[in-house]
Protein backbone atom coordinates (compact mmCIF):
# COMPACT_ATOMS: atom_id res chain seq x y z
CA UNK A 1 0.00 0.00 0.00
CA UNK A 2 2.72 2.45 0.98
CA UNK A 3 4.65 1.43 -2.15
CA UNK A 4 1.69 2.30 -4.33
CA UNK A 5 1.29 5.58 -2.55
CA UNK A 6 4.97 6.41 -2.85
CA UNK A 7 4.94 5.56 -6.54
CA UNK A 8 1.80 7.60 -7.07
CA UNK A 9 3.37 10.53 -5.27
CA UNK A 10 6.50 10.15 -7.34
CA UNK A 11 4.44 10.13 -10.53
CA UNK A 12 2.59 13.24 -9.49
CA UNK A 13 5.76 15.07 -8.55
CA UNK A 14 7.47 14.13 -11.78
CA UNK A 15 4.41 15.05 -13.81
CA UNK A 16 4.20 18.41 -12.13
CA UNK A 17 7.89 18.97 -12.73
CA UNK A 18 7.59 18.07 -16.38
CA UNK A 19 4.54 20.22 -16.79
CA UNK A 20 6.29 23.13 -15.16
CA UNK A 21 9.38 22.65 -17.30
CA UNK A 22 7.30 22.51 -20.48
CA UNK A 23 5.86 25.90 -19.63
CA UNK A 24 8.97 27.46 -18.12
CA UNK A 25 11.52 26.35 -20.72
CA UNK A 26 9.29 26.57 -23.75
CA UNK A 27 11.33 26.90 -26.97
CA UNK A 28 10.19 29.64 -29.30
CA UNK A 29 9.68 28.52 -32.88
CA UNK A 30 10.67 25.15 -34.24
CA UNK A 31 14.39 24.46 -33.64
CA UNK A 32 14.46 21.61 -36.17
CA UNK A 33 12.99 23.78 -38.91
CA UNK A 34 15.60 26.38 -38.00
CA UNK A 35 18.43 23.89 -38.45
CA UNK A 36 16.97 22.57 -41.70
CA UNK A 37 16.64 26.10 -42.98
CA UNK A 38 20.32 26.70 -42.26
CA UNK A 39 21.19 23.82 -44.62
CA UNK A 40 19.02 24.98 -47.51
CA UNK A 41 20.66 27.12 -50.21
CA UNK A 42 18.39 30.12 -49.60
CA UNK A 43 17.72 30.81 -53.23
CA UNK A 44 14.03 31.25 -52.32
CA UNK A 45 13.28 29.88 -55.78
CA UNK A 46 10.16 27.90 -54.90
CA UNK A 47 11.13 24.92 -57.04
CA UNK A 48 10.31 22.65 -54.10
CA UNK A 49 6.71 23.78 -54.30
CA UNK A 50 6.88 25.97 -51.23
CA UNK A 51 7.11 29.76 -51.28
CA UNK A 52 10.71 30.00 -50.11
CA UNK A 53 13.29 28.08 -48.14
CA UNK A 54 11.82 28.56 -44.68
CA UNK A 55 8.39 27.19 -45.60
CA UNK A 56 10.09 24.15 -47.13
CA UNK A 57 12.20 23.74 -43.99
CA UNK A 58 9.04 23.81 -41.92
CA UNK A 59 7.43 21.29 -44.26
CA UNK A 60 10.43 18.97 -43.89
CA UNK A 61 10.23 19.35 -40.13
CA UNK A 62 6.58 18.32 -40.45
CA UNK A 63 7.54 15.23 -42.44
CA UNK A 64 7.95 16.23 -46.09
CA UNK A 65 10.63 14.65 -48.29
CA UNK A 66 14.14 16.07 -48.27
CA UNK A 67 14.88 15.66 -51.98
CA UNK A 68 12.89 18.53 -53.46
CA UNK A 69 15.60 21.18 -53.62
CA UNK A 70 17.21 21.34 -57.09
CA UNK A 71 19.59 24.27 -56.36
CA UNK A 72 20.94 22.49 -53.29
CA UNK A 73 21.35 19.21 -55.12
CA UNK A 74 22.97 16.15 -53.68
CA UNK A 75 25.03 18.13 -51.16
CA UNK A 76 21.92 19.58 -49.51
CA UNK A 77 20.15 16.21 -49.53
CA UNK A 78 23.20 14.67 -47.88
CA UNK A 79 23.36 17.39 -45.25
CA UNK A 80 19.64 17.06 -44.50
CA UNK A 81 19.86 13.29 -44.35
CA UNK A 82 22.66 13.59 -41.82
CA UNK A 83 20.78 16.12 -39.75
CA UNK A 84 17.51 14.19 -39.71
CA UNK A 85 19.06 10.73 -39.70
CA UNK A 86 17.29 9.73 -42.90
CA UNK A 87 18.41 7.82 -45.96
CA UNK A 88 19.56 10.21 -48.69
CA UNK A 89 17.33 9.94 -51.76
CA UNK A 90 17.98 10.99 -55.34
CA UNK A 91 16.84 14.48 -56.27
CA UNK A 92 13.16 14.68 -57.15
CA UNK A 93 13.27 17.10 -60.09
CA UNK A 94 12.61 16.71 -63.81
CA UNK A 95 15.77 18.47 -64.99
CA UNK A 96 17.95 17.11 -62.24
CA UNK A 97 20.70 19.14 -60.63
CA UNK A 98 21.45 22.40 -62.39
CA UNK A 99 24.80 24.16 -62.41
CA UNK A 100 24.83 27.45 -60.52
CA UNK A 101 23.22 30.11 -62.65
CA UNK A 102 23.14 33.86 -62.65
CA UNK A 103 20.52 36.14 -64.20
CA UNK A 104 21.54 38.67 -66.79
CA UNK A 105 19.34 41.41 -68.23
CA UNK A 106 19.82 42.28 -71.89
CA UNK A 107 19.89 45.92 -71.01
CA UNK A 108 19.17 47.30 -74.46
CA UNK A 109 15.81 45.51 -74.42
CA UNK A 110 14.79 46.39 -70.86
CA UNK A 111 11.77 48.71 -70.76
CA UNK A 112 12.06 49.53 -67.07
CA UNK A 113 8.81 47.95 -65.90
CA UNK A 114 10.21 47.03 -62.41
CA UNK A 115 8.42 43.67 -62.51
CA UNK A 116 11.63 41.73 -62.04
CA UNK A 117 12.58 44.01 -59.13
CA UNK A 118 9.44 42.96 -57.30
CA UNK A 119 10.02 39.31 -58.08
CA UNK A 120 13.62 39.14 -56.85
CA UNK A 121 13.63 37.63 -53.36
CA UNK A 122 17.05 38.99 -52.44
CA UNK A 123 16.89 42.49 -53.96
CA UNK A 124 19.63 41.63 -56.44
CA UNK A 125 18.18 43.73 -59.25
CA UNK A 126 18.64 47.48 -59.30
CA UNK A 127 16.58 49.87 -61.35
CA UNK A 128 13.62 52.22 -61.28
CA UNK A 129 10.46 52.76 -63.27
CA UNK A 130 11.27 53.58 -66.90
CA UNK A 131 14.97 53.19 -66.12
CA UNK A 132 17.13 50.32 -67.25
CA UNK A 133 17.49 47.50 -64.72
CA UNK A 134 20.55 45.40 -64.06
CA UNK A 135 21.42 42.36 -61.97
CA UNK A 136 24.01 42.52 -59.21
CA UNK A 137 25.66 39.24 -60.16
CA UNK A 138 27.32 38.79 -56.76
CA UNK A 139 23.94 38.90 -54.99
CA UNK A 140 22.01 36.82 -57.53
CA UNK A 141 21.10 33.35 -56.29
CA UNK A 142 20.09 32.11 -59.74
CA UNK A 143 16.51 31.31 -58.66
CA UNK A 144 15.09 32.47 -62.06
CA UNK A 145 12.03 34.00 -60.41
CA UNK A 146 12.68 37.17 -62.41
CA UNK A 147 12.49 35.45 -65.81
CA UNK A 148 8.77 34.74 -65.75
CA UNK A 149 7.45 38.24 -64.96
CA UNK A 150 9.56 40.02 -67.60
CA UNK A 151 7.12 41.26 -70.27
CA UNK A 152 9.81 41.56 -72.96
CA UNK A 153 11.73 38.39 -72.08
CA UNK A 154 15.02 40.20 -71.77
CA UNK A 155 16.36 38.18 -68.82
CA UNK A 156 18.64 35.21 -69.47
CA UNK A 157 19.81 32.65 -66.96
CA UNK A 158 23.41 31.90 -67.78
CA UNK A 159 25.57 29.30 -66.07
CA UNK A 160 28.06 30.87 -63.71
CA UNK A 161 31.26 31.14 -65.68
CA UNK A 162 34.02 28.94 -64.34
CA UNK A 163 37.02 31.00 -63.31
CA UNK A 164 40.45 30.20 -61.96
CA UNK A 165 39.26 31.25 -58.50
CA UNK A 166 36.49 28.64 -58.60
CA UNK A 167 38.47 25.87 -60.22
CA UNK A 168 39.09 22.89 -58.00
CA UNK A 169 40.98 19.65 -58.15
CA UNK A 170 38.95 16.53 -58.81
CA UNK A 171 39.00 13.78 -56.27
CA UNK A 172 41.05 10.89 -57.75
CA UNK A 173 39.19 7.70 -58.45
CA UNK A 174 39.31 5.29 -55.57
CA UNK A 175 42.14 2.81 -56.08
CA UNK A 176 41.67 -0.88 -56.69
CA UNK A 177 38.19 -0.61 -58.08
CA UNK A 178 39.28 -0.52 -61.67
CA UNK A 179 39.98 -3.44 -63.90
CA UNK A 180 43.46 -3.53 -65.34
CA UNK A 181 42.54 -2.13 -68.77
CA UNK A 182 40.73 0.84 -67.21
CA UNK A 183 43.63 1.60 -64.96
CA UNK A 184 45.73 2.62 -67.92
CA UNK A 185 43.04 5.07 -68.96
CA UNK A 186 42.57 6.45 -65.46
CA UNK A 187 46.27 7.00 -64.94
Amino acid sequence: MTAVLVLLLLCLVCGALLGYAAVRFRVEGNPIAEQINARLPQTQCGQCGYPGCRPYAEAIAAGDKINKCPPGGAATIQALAELLDLEPEPLDAAEGEKPPMVARIREAECIGCTKCLQACPVDAIVGAAKQMHTVIAAECTGCDLCVEPCPVDCIDMIPLAGSLQHWKWDLPLPPGRLIASDRERAA
Partner: peptide, 11 residues
Protein backbone atom coordinates in the same frame (compact mmCIF):
# COMPACT_ATOMS: atom_id res chain seq x y z
CA UNK B 1 23.30 31.03 -48.52
CA UNK B 2 23.56 32.83 -45.19
CA UNK B 3 24.02 36.15 -46.95
CA UNK B 4 21.03 35.48 -49.22
CA UNK B 5 18.91 34.46 -46.26
CA UNK B 6 19.73 37.71 -44.48
CA UNK B 7 18.88 39.71 -47.57
CA UNK B 8 15.65 37.77 -48.05
CA UNK B 9 14.61 38.30 -44.45
CA UNK B 10 15.41 41.99 -44.59
CA UNK B 11 13.33 42.26 -47.73
Amino acid sequence: AEHSRRRFELR
